[in-house]
Design a protein around this nucleic acid. Sequence first.
RNA 1: GGAGGAGUGGCCGAGUGGCUUAAGGCGGCGGUCUUGAAAACCGUAGUGGGUCACACCACCGUGGGUUCAAAUCCUACCUCCUCCGCCA
Length: 423
Amino acid sequence: MLELKFVRQNLDKVKDSLEKRFTEADLATFSKCDEERRSILLKIEDLRHRRNVVSDEIKELKKAGEDAEKLIGEMREVSSDIKGMDGSLSKLEETINDIIIGIPNIPHPSVPSGKTEDDNDLLKEVGDVPTFSFEPKAHWDIGEDLKIFNFEKASQITGARFPLYLGLGARLERALISFMLDIHTEEHGYTEVLPPYIVNRKSMTGTGQLPKFEEDLFKIEGWDYFLIPTAEVPVTNIHAGDILTEDELPINYTAFTPCFRSEAGSYGRDTRGLIRQHQFHKVELVKFTKAEESYDELEKLLSNAETILKRLGIAYRVVTLCGGDLGFSAAKTYDIEVWMPAQNVYREISSCSNFEDFQARRAGLRFKRKGQKGTELVHTLNGSGLAVGRTVAAILENFQQEDGTVLIPEALQPYMGGLKRIE
RNA sequence: GGAGGAGUGGCCGAGUGGCUUAAGGCGGCGGUCUUGAAAACCGUAGUGGGUCACACCACCGUGGGUUCAAAUCCUACCUCCUCCGCCA
């Protein structure tokens, strides 16, 4: 959420931002209600001040044993006036809040303009795209042939877009999770956390999934709880409402969790394989930093996520998302896209974002600077490190052999009990 | 699920209608002393809104209510703790 005062004083910037994102917000209503709110607030505060003063007088009169009925009668009216104005005030505030909570973050100046993913800026390409002497198969065919997953059974158990890993498939998924967590905790200095997989409405609002994107979430019937679409939500909310000290920052967390997404509006897209599922696993990286450090930390975050693909030896590229492709809460996002030989395309496998103080303001994430009065909002960042299912898909496609077997990347072999090949 | 108890500033903790615009302590910050530090002492300091700066307003888990006046009374809800029951 943007600061009320910022929106009031920077309407042009907000308009530019909305244009860059190809989205809209009712700024006219905002301005109108904001003005009204301030004039009413002024009157209310005035009346409250009067009430405070006169209440003191009443106290004194009563103590002196004198009659205070006249003043009490007067105050009775003042109080009822206040109550009436309070009602219209909260209505205005609700309207203002509804608008402001629906305004997306302001993109960082370095964010390229553009409307769709085709307009994203290519930042770099890393690793060699493999060449095959045969027609490479799609990962769902490889996996079904090796009997390491079975999508038909999964949809029999639940429905479309759910995974069922078997044998070495399940083992591969588990190996990758440990592999990723070990690198991030032992080499990159992240603290491992295991958060709840179900969160309340407040947490979802804190990180920006709500109120705008409720249709993308699975809601628990009979509860105001939701399945998490990413570990970002519970992990960022660990410090909701906290006032941290300067020397606690930066805080780096990594968490493995399942993720649940309704994928509303994506019917017919990526219907086969592990790319787009209602349930998938992800190792997430989350950072809390001081404002002046957040963009350096974003570069570190990106490089931490890249390390996983480098160790596995899979080719990828990094793009900077354009304004139109940028997520609601993000000020800047890098996507890591992994090479998928069967489809001959790069597919998103990680998204690394700086939210600046946008989530911090919603969730109340603050810190105190040494020797200074008052508190400051922290900056929050997160990125996938990496999406596990998509990594499995990438391994299967990139390391497939002509005989249908799949070589296991050397770095991963210790996590597979020394196994070198799935056959 | 049943029965009790509790939620107050960064932390601990006092406070049952107006001498509390939240006591006291710890921690923080500034200073005195010291070669330096510690200790001791003095001072300063909650969070947010508002103002050039003051003034002023709000905030004691959350929302309603009573009252001229609410941290304090009523009410609903949330969270935590203890005991009992059930359970991976």
